[in-house]
Design a protein around this nucleic acid. Structure first.
Lengths: 239, 239
DNA sequence: CCGCAAACTAGAACGGATTCTAGTGTTTGT
DNA sequence: ACAAACACTAGAATCCGTTCTAGTTTGCGG
């Protein structure tokens, strides 16, 4: 029998030692959780312990990435810090990128709730859009290494990109009152999406050290003023 | 600033060991190398042979990338196909990314000369911009694997890449008559740059299979109409 | 022709992501 | 309670980018 390597802070797994189920808050669509092929009937306790394991992994990953960027976030190290075996880490996140995406998800959640807590106060739609984007920029740039890792990885993602889409949705909500992804016209969607594209690229330029905060703000303002002109003063509505 | 024509690089000295440079020298750290960019046969055979070697390398890389993408473009394989040793390959291109950048450079050269040969015929600046961007899109999508590899790699690049900049310059030239990177106002530059950003992101979406050719065209048109409105009908100069 | 320095070659070595192996708990169905 | 199924672990193995080593070739100045 193997002795539990107590080297890390979380030996884990021996005993889930959990409390009563708190009804598992949070997003139920967990991506890399093992045991997917099993029917839904299974497991109350297992799920919880797995939940915690996953959480520890993501936390360890974020901590490593926040200083040193992706390079510092090595799979072996993440596994070690999280107190799981490398194979287990790969069971939860089939690739490094999946792990990065998970970390990003948390960041976006943060921004979203921040905006709910304190909505943009500008009077014009484009003003509110700029507000949101600059707030997102500041939030991301608080941990440049992390931001760098996250942005790049998301752009690379083969499939779904929760980033651009969620940001577009966010912008849509703060610019056009009551409009959501489902009710927006093709044109509205394209325009807000374009603004989001511009922001992403500007962010990248900033991470490359080719933009200052002020330059980004200026350029976003210029782009927003043009792209969202119809939102600010709808042509169908007289002034 | 350095050279306007990065198409002629030459072997440079090795970069320092240790971690990969975070944001140091760009892809073309040119060091004192016998007149490579000169057609003059002064120093003779060596230069020419190096030129050819470089060409063979880039061709081999492009050929490999055009099917199979970046993954298929393995440094060992490139070296083998080009008939050079791995060490030599690394002397010419200090990293895989530098090689990718070189391949992209050729693609952009192609587009540039195509545009010189047959300039966009639309009457409005935004129309010409859309023309150029769609032509670039078609050109790139002719080799989707290659395009995918190139675009992603370039966006990921730590350092500056000639991609966005050259495209922006190109757009500037076809939209505002006689305006170049050096003479454009900050606003013009920001607007054209934004359009370029939108295009890049749309291209990415297409590569992800989330856009058709027509959708891209539509969205680019929408964005261009707004972003380049002042170019189409300058507020200061009545038509 | 000589010798030097840079460029080239073949191949080993190294590092990090990803995969594979074998074995040890742990959960679940009956 | 027992066995099949599954989650986990430690560690070896593999793949590919990059670096390093040692020896060979090439071109140029003298």
């Amino acid at each position: 029998m193997r002795i539990p390597h107590a080297t890390t802070e979380a030996p884990a797994t021996r005993r889930p030692a959990g409390t009563s189920a708190p009804s598992t808050a949070g997003p139920s669509t967990i991506k890399g959780v093992p045991g997917v092929h099993s029917e839904t009937t299974s497991t109350g306790a297992r799920t919880r312990s797995q939940h915690q394991r996953r959480k520890r992994i993501v936390q360890a990953a974020a901590a490593l990435a926040s200083r040193g960027g992706v390079e510092a976030m090595q799979m072996r190290t993440v596994a070690e810090r999280a107190g799981v075996a490398l194979g287990t880490l790969y069971r939860y996140f089939p690739s490094k990128m999946d792990l990065v995406v998970a970390v990003v998800g948390e960041e976006i959640d943060l921004l979203e709730s921040s905006i709910e807590r304190r909505p943009p106060s500008a009077t014009t739609p484009s003003g509110r859009a700029v507000d949101v984007l600059m707030r997102a920029t500041r939030g991301l740039m608080r941990e440049p290494e992390l931001a760098d890792a996250l942005i790049r990885s998301l752009i690379l993602a083969e499939v779904e990109t929760p980033f651009g889409d969620r940001m577009t949705d966010l912008l849509l909500r703060v610019t056009a009152d009551g409009v959501t992804v489902r009710t927006a016209t093709e044109e509205q969607f394209a325009l807000v999406g374009s603004l989001s594209s511009v922001w992403v690229q500007e962010l990248l330029e900033m991470l490359r050290g080719r933009r200052t905060h002020e330059q980004i703000q200026r350029r976003i303002e210029i782009a927003a003023a043009r792209l969202l002109a119809d939102f600010d003063a709808p042509p169908s509505a007289p002034k």
